[in-house]
């Protein structure tokens, strides 16, 4: 080897590994927040590298809204088996049954905001002091201000105006009883970086990301998948389209796009010519100009 610098993907990988090892060294009981989406899969993959030849030392925590794509759950269980990791599930349905939260009403009702309570309950009951997430700063304007180590008060809240400065590569994960941290090892990755890396490393991702034939309904400028939770409105009709999903959330809020991209190479090529942001098909972000910031302040991912 004659060059003594890393290419940018290797540098991002090295940075993420550094952060995951800091989490392990600084916290007592960290978990990886696992949604089944590509970003949390990537974080899990990076954790495998960071601690090799040891196993991933963190459990995976999944906040299950009950409104999942069946493919996501299957994928999650397969991955847990493969890595020999522990799984912790926080159930939104249980939070509803226990009366901790109530279902939203109205035609655009989702369980998106309900997850906050379930997540914070799961963090508290499992005594988690750091929840590692796949959040990226390029996703959304509130996330652009996020730290690698992000402090949460004892109500689980984020105070964006009073964050700890992060200098060089020194991370301050000190907290008082009841508080916790969120850690974001892939903060500096963009959507394109994630796809390029998934392709380079040949990382397994759910089939939903690849173009496939599916029953869908056209709503809010994207193709919403037909599921038992979807209520058809007047004038809406079910069609079969070849679509793929660019991000994965609940089946009720994740819109697909028409696509022929059925290989990683085709996805990377398609993403590089994309004219809309990644979360543009997420109705949860469209509720207001500061929808993400408001949820993050309360304790969202």
């Amino acid at each position: 080897m004659s060059k003594y610098y890393l290419n940018y993907l290797d540098e991002l990988e090295s940075e993420a590994i550094f952060i995951l090892r800091e989490v392990w060294a600084q916290f007592e009981n960290p978990v990886i927040l696992f949604s089944g989406g590509k970003d949390s899969i990537l974080v899990t993959h990076l954790a495998k590298k960071a601690f090799y030849p040891s196993k991933i030392p963190f459990p995976l925590m999944h906040v299950d809204t009950g409104h999942n794509f069946p493919e996501t759950i299957q994928f999650r269980d397969d991955l847990i088996n493969e890595f020999g990791a522990q799984l912790i599930v926080g159930s939104v349905q249980e939070s509803i049954d226990e009366g901790r939260v109530s279902e939203e009403k109205g035609k655009n009702a989702t369980r998106n905001a309900l997850q906050i309570t379930t997540l914070l309950d799961a963090i508290e009951s499992n005594k988690v002091d750091c929840a590692i997430g796949g959040g990226r700063r390029d996703e959304e304007k509130a996330r652009a201000k996020e730290r690698f180590f992000s402090h949460r008060d004892d109500f689980g809240q984020w105070d964006p105006k009073n964050q700890r400065p992060e200098l060089w590569n020194i991370l301050n994960g000190k907290y008082f009883e009841g508080e916790h941290f969120r850690a974001f090892p892939i903060s500096n990755w963009t959507e394109m970086d994630v796809w390029n890396y998934i392709m380079r490393e040949n990382i397994q991702i759910p089939s939903l990301y690849f173009a496939h034939q599916r029953d869908v309904v056209w709503r809010s400028n994207s193709w919403i998948p037909v599921s038992e939770y979807l209520k058809l409105e007047d004038g809406e009709k079910i069609e079969s389209k070849k679509i793929r999903f660019r991000t994965l959330g609940d089946i009720t809020i994740t819109g697909g796009m028409e696509s022929d991209a059925d290989t990683l190479e085709k996805i990377v090529a398609e993403v590089s010519t994309m004219k809309q942001t990644e979360r543009g098909n997420r109705t949860d972000d469209k509720r207001s100009e500061s929808a993400m910031e408001d949820r993050k302040r309360q304790g969202y991912f």
Binding site: Y8, R137, D138, K141, A142, A144, K145, P160, K161, Q163, P165, S187, N188, T190, M192, D193, E289, S290, E293
Partner: peptide, 26 residues
Amino acid sequence: DGLKDEREQGITIDVAYRYFTTPKRK
């Protein structure tokens, strides 16, 4: 523009990170 307060006051309060890529560098 970033956080709500920043938009309202038209100022930057905190460090914001932005990303772009050219065929030569990230």
